[in-house]
Amino acid sequence: MLAERAADGDAASFETLARRHGPLMRAYARRLTRSHDEADDVVQEALVTAWKDIGTLQDGAAVKAWMMRIVGHRAIDAGRRRKSHDNLDDQADPADRKPTPEQAAVASSARVALNHALARLPEEQRRCWVLKEFGGQSYDEIAEALGISAASVRGRLARARTMLVKEMEEWR
């Protein structure tokens, strides 16, 4: 019902949806981008897109998954823009990535291990894994968003999972 109202241009209903799902969208965007600033740009763009396109959403019950999918797409776009604008000097070395505050706050050992393992994963694999596990997207959706084949997505995910399981075992 909220999605239906939002689709009719009811800003209050859209705002309620945005507030309900916003934190997860931001958390998701942070896992898909290189910095918190970039993540917030992604969320802002995703909200603009969602507000513009919510009239096309057929199933109001699927609004959360739909918003997460938009975040995924916008994050991939942001990554492409970054790649085409960045100089090599600006490329952050994944090994140098310092833990962000929310990463430092992670408590349980399995989560700590996963958090560290994720930071060490090559960006392409990490992105695939996050789109699948956090975004709940299918192989085909990820393939389409990244412009690669579903078989490549499967391969990347398998490599990512193998690495992550291995690193988590070493952590313990």
């Binding site: 945005a18 934190p23 931001r26 958390a27 909200l47 505050p101 929310e102 996963l114 956090f134």
Partner: peptide, 26 residues
């Protein structure tokens, strides 16, 4: 399991940061 936990942690972290960032966007 760890992935689900990590996602909940991430979300809880954002919630703990307040809503100021979202207010601005909205």
């Amino acid at each position: 399991t760890a992935a689900l936990d990590l996602m909940s942690d991430d979300e809880a972290q954002v919630v703990a940061e307040g809503t100021g960032w979202l207010d601005g966007m909205l």
